[in-house]
Design a protein around this nucleic acid. Structure first.
Length: 993
RNA sequence: GCAGGCGUGGCGGAAUUGGUAUACGCGCUAGCCUUAGGAGCUAGUGGAGCAAUCUAUGAGAGUUCAAAUCUCUCCGCCUGCACCA
């Protein structure tokens, strides 16, 4: 018998497939149901494919092949996210044009993908760095600009003083320059932004022809897609919605003490808070160093030189320093007081860099008793701490301190309470108390290192709150029955320590020794006393609005998307700066039929060196704005494009006078925000994609890619989709219906694969040694798609054995036709084979649809393990098994298929066809049910016997048989069966006393 | 700190409408075959025990005839975000 030779087989079929591209082509004309199966398009790095690529591409390949066999019209494209920094950095080093290195890398990637047998529709290949693609990236920029969704403003960017260049956030991780290790500082520069913040909440359509349409927001849209919970959570977290209130604090009127009095136009400033309920505990206010009020009040601040010095210091601070020093610093603004509108109290004002300028109003009301950061600051600068919220329902309390620790232990012993002393992960000692039979545990953390003598731990009623030196650590609740139990058991202790608790409560809790951050009940808050935090927030906000000293406000952490990059290897921003046009009022956009401008948005202008320039969009007919090749890649602090005269010297498309082209390029995330539209209509020269084709193929049915893109790429792509929906281009507002992330494949040593550790698995080597089919199977068999899994080279042997086993079986087995297909019992065919085949069809069909490829492969193995013992097999069964195998190991399946269907070389005489033109087998419902089962007989839930019975055995019969069993009788001697449970088709459980 | 997730043999993992725990694979053990084997074949393989049997899904409790699966608490690990008021 010929040996299984993966090299010959795989090469042969890859050649065949490339000669028959229609096997994998998505048919624009077909009336069949469509399925759009998409991989996140890769960045073609010089290193080629890695194990993680292979994992996710194999998964989508199996899915695509399966769906085609199921008769679906499948769109499964691939392309290249080809702009980006590595290619440019390489160019700086070697002076080789990024376009050249990129093309080489693409060729490698593509060759490797073909080597893996992936069934991409290569007729739809795209490359984001090619002009026919980035033409449309630029078109999108103009679309946003003309709809007021792209704008320019000053912003802080990462700046490396050593490299003289702007850095992307990813290049400035940890606050140091990726290239030279120099600390990164913040520098103000004019930057382009996309208004992603317009799409957080649902919005009404802007396009004229779609008046009634509502576009779902980035938040609520998540509710209608099938995505991993963690990804949805990460997006929500990133958007960072918090509901609270803006409160106006008046500054000049020191007499402002009557709360019915209005601020009457006095100078005031606003703070944002989510905890209005704590406002009576506000003892000072803080503004960020960048807050504009500082300049306005400059003359009134008595210690201005000191303040100015502080501002300089904090401005100089790098991100790294700000991150490293958690120590809070600040300076009081002497001579300035602000007034709390609720009680008229005059409060000091501080500037401190623990307050962020870009969040909320850049100013806060500080409530040290109920906010950890304010607490730290107040402690440091000796500011008053005023308790206004206390935990609710204080029933009982037990107080334990370090000085009484031994006493406490003795007390426990004396009361017969079992306990053990352990260390938690923070090395805090705790006592675990076990109460009675029910074994309720209470962890009493003694935490010597955190507790001063006579500080304490409190157990209160429904909540158990551990309070350390300065804050509440944790709470948890018991149900009522348990509380009672605890209280009874702790009675003696409670008596013993109660007085100490009361003393401490009076002395500590209400005098600022601790910081209680949770909701509770209000105290020291005038008419609001006794309300819960939630009630108080509601009432106080109403009052603010009534008195016009504040309002309800929702704040978001997310900021507009900074899209400009001072870089070469990206899509140029299609804008032209014209001095002359800035003087003409009522500028109209250059003629553009494609991009509507329903609001008649005018050109924005910007200032360079004191001169105003109009920002003219490049007319559509002049797109793409191509990247020049006469550039020097050395970093100079500006985009390398600035050096190219031919690039930036242009005539204004509106007035024809001398003008200058924008030299910034776009973030690569812009390119990847819309590529999934392009696949639907990749050849289109008139539109980014034709309406009909979008309608036909989009949205994406299954999207698979790395979890590193949970936030940015997916959020930006959703934003683009919402913009298009909002402007009436498309009729859906979420691009990816179902999303899954492949888990990271770790190296054999359990660490991340990385070049520096030298533990990277190279797919080329693996394929050379074991074959693509083996690698595909192995990566799918390792475990669930989404789990993190370590590579294990030995494990791949198992897959090679599996493939060889199939090979050998198909070469030695005698195929028979018993005249009735796969189901009929045949001579010499093992009895269970037809049923096993149908079970296998069912299992594999269901597993593929749920992306459980590991268990699908296990089922293939079970079948072949069983079948390989047989000498004969029905022809129909042999064919069906190969079809089941085909999505997983396409090369071997084609080879064996050709073998059993027609003589090799394949289909040469038109005798047969590729296995991928076959139909996915259906299973017979009656055949997947067992005729007989092993009826499990349990006694008190423990299996004691098993008997082979008919699957549809009746309850009475089953019980009779169970009681008649010899093994069971033994257990029933002298016992009485109280109850007998019968589960149809499964078991009998006899309950005895 | 906040959010999401995880914890099952020597290893990767199966089994979650509660119903035979450890499918499938790797590894390991024994035997066969072979000049040889990091090849192949056969059998075995959670732990303890000669056996009957007992015992085991991070720990403990609860619900149930029955819990890896549901509830609660604790412990440990991973991922993302984080001075976001």
């Amino acid at each position: 018998m010929e040996k299984y030779n993966h090299k010959n087989i795989e090469a042969k079929w890859q050649k065949y497939w490339s000669e028959q591209p229609e096997l994998y082509t998505a048919a624009d004309e077909s009336g069949k149901d469509k399925q759009y199966i998409l991989d996140m398009f890769p960045y073609p790095s010089g290193n080629g494919l890695h194990a993680g690529h292979v994992e996710s591409y194999t998964a989508t390949d199996i899915m695509s092949r399966y769906l085609r066999l199921k008769g679906k019209n499948v769109l499964h494209p691939q392309g290249w996210d080809a702009f980006g920094l590595p290619a440019e950095n390489y160019a700086i080093k070697t002076k080789i044009q990024p376009a050249i290195t990129t093309r080489q890398a693409v060729a490698t990637f593509k060759q490797q993908m073909k080597m893996m047998g992936f069934s991409y529709d290569w007729s739809r290949e795209l490359n984001s760095s090619e002009p026919d693609y980035y033409k449309w990236t630029q078109w999108f920029f103009l679309l946003l600009y003309k709809n007021g969704l792209a704008y320019k403003k000053k912003a802080k960017v990462n700046w490396c003083a050593s490299c003289q260049t702007v850095l992307a956030n990813e290049q400035a991780e940890g606050g140091v320059c990726e290239r030279c290790g120099h600390p990164v500082t913040q520098k103000d520069m004019e930057q382009w932004f996309f208004k992603i913040t317009d799409f957080i909440e649902p919005s009404f359509a802007k396009a004229t022809e779609a008046k009634e349409r509502i576009t779902s927001g980035l938040l609520d849209g998540l509710n209608k897609v099938d995505w991993p919970e963690s990804t949805k959570a990460a997006q929500k977290n990133w958007i960072g919605k918090s509901e609270g209130a803006i409160i106006k604090f008046s500054i000049f009127n020191f007499q402002f003490s009557n709360k019915s009095q209005k601020p009457n136009g006095q100078k005031y400033f606003e703070v944002f808070t989510t905890r209005v309920d704590t406002i009576f505990g506000c003892t000072y206010l803080v503004v960020a160093p960048e807050h504009k009020i500082l300049n306005e009040l400059k003359l009134r601040i008595k210690n201005w030189p000191e303040v100015e010095k502080y501002l300089e210091q904090s401005n100089k601070k790098t991100d790294l320093e700000r991150m490293e020093s958690k120590e809070k610093t600040g300076v009081e603004l002497k001579g300035i007081k602000a007034v709390n509108p609720f009680n008229g109290q005059e409060l000091p004002l501080f500037v401190a860099d623990y307050v962020l300028a870009h969040y909320g109003t850049g100013a806060i009301m500080a409530v040290p008793a109920h906010d950890q950061r304010d607490f730290e600051f107040a402690k440091k600068y000796n500011l008053p701490i005023k308790q206004v919220v206390k935990p609710k329902d204080v029933l009982r309390s037990v107080v334990v301190g370090i000085t009484v620790e031994e006493r406490f232990k003795e007390e426990l012993k004396r009361n017969g309470i079992k306990f053990e002393v352990g260390l938690s992960k923070n090395k805090r000692e705790h006592i675990r108390v076990i109460l009675g039979k029910k074994q309720i545990e209470i962890y009493i953390k003694l935490a010597q290192t955190y507790l001063k003598p006579d500080s304490w731990v409190e157990i209160i009623g429904s909540e158990n709150i551990f309070i350390f030196k300065d804050r509440v650590i944790k709470n948890f609740s018991f149900n009522d029955k348990k509380i009672l139990n605890i209280c009874q058991k702790f009675e003696p202790l409670v008596k013993h320590y109660k007085s100490l608790w009361e003393m401490l409560e009076a002395n500590l809790f209400y005098q600022g020794w601790i910081c209680y951050v949770d909701d509770g009940v209000l105290v020291n808050s005038g008419e609001y006393n006794g309300l819960t935090s939630a009630e108080a927030r509601e009432k106080m906000t109403e009052w603010l609005e009534k008195e016009k000293v504040g309002r309800r406000k929702i704040n978001y952490k997310i900021r507009d998307w900074l899209v400009s990059r001072q870089r070469y290897w990206g899509a140029p921003i299609p804008i032209i700066y014209c001095r002359k046009c800035s003087e003409i009022s009522n500028n109209q956009f250059p003629i553009s039929k494609q991009i509507p401008n329903p609001k008649n948005i005018k050109f924005q202008t910007t200032i360079f060196d004191g001169e105003e320039y109009a920002m003219i969009p490049v007319p559509e007919k002049d797109l793409p704005v191509k990247l020049p090749t006469d550039v020097d890649f050395m970093p100079t602090g500006q985009s390398p494009l600035v050096n190219s005269e031919s690039f930036h010297k242009v005539k204004c498309p509106v007035c024809g006078s001398k003008a200058r082209r924008e030299s910034d390029t776009m973030d690569t995330f812009v390119c990847s925000s819309w590529y999934y539209f392009r696949y639907a209509d990749v050849q289109n020269k008139k539109e980014f994609a034709g309406k009909e084709m979008i309608k036909k193929w989009l949205p994406v049915d299954l999207y698979v890619g790395g979890a590193e893109h949970t936030v940015l790429h997916l959020l930006y792509a959703r934003f683009f989709t919402k913009v298009l929906h909002n402007l009436g281009y498309i009729d859906f507002d979420e691009p990816f219906l179902k999303l899954r992330h492949q888990g990271i494949i770790l190296a054999e040593d359990g660490r991340k694969m990385s070049k520096s550790l030298g533990n990277v698995v190279n797919p080329d080597e693996v394929v050379k040694q074991y074959g693509a089919d083996a690698l595909r199977l192995f990566e799918m068999f390792m475990g669930p798609l989404e789990d993190m899994k370590p590579w294990n080279t030995r494990g791949i042997i198992g897959q090679v054995r599996f493939l060889e086993k199939i090979w050998q079986f198909y070469h030695k087995v005698k195929l028979t036709d018993c005249g009735g297909g796969a189901n009929k019992p045949c001579e010499n065919v093992p009895e269970g084979m037809p049923r096993l085949l149908h079970k296998t069809i069912k299992k594999i069909t269901e597993d593929i649809e749920a992306l459980r490829f590991n268990t699908a492969i296990a089922q293939l193995m079970i079948f072949i393990n069983f079948a390989s013992k047989a000498e004969t097999m029905p022809q129909a069964a042999a064919e069906k098994f190969l079809i089941l195998l085909a999505p997983f190991a396409p090369h071997l399946a084609e080879e064996l298929w050709a073998n059993i269907k027609s003589p090799l070389p394949p289909f040469a005489k038109g005798g047969s066809h590729s296995i991928f033109k076959e139909k996915w087998p259906e299973y017979d419902k009656n055949m997947v049910k067992n005729e007989t089962i092993n009826l499990v007989i349990q006694i008190n839930g423990k299996t004691r016997d098993m008997i082979k019975v008919s699957a549809d055995i009746s309850e009475a019969e089953a019980k009779k048989l169970a009681l008649a069993s010899e093994k069971i009788k033994k257990w029933l001697v002298g016992k009485e069966a109280v109850k007998i449970i019968f589960v149809k088709g499964k078991l009998v459980n006899i309950v005895i006393k």
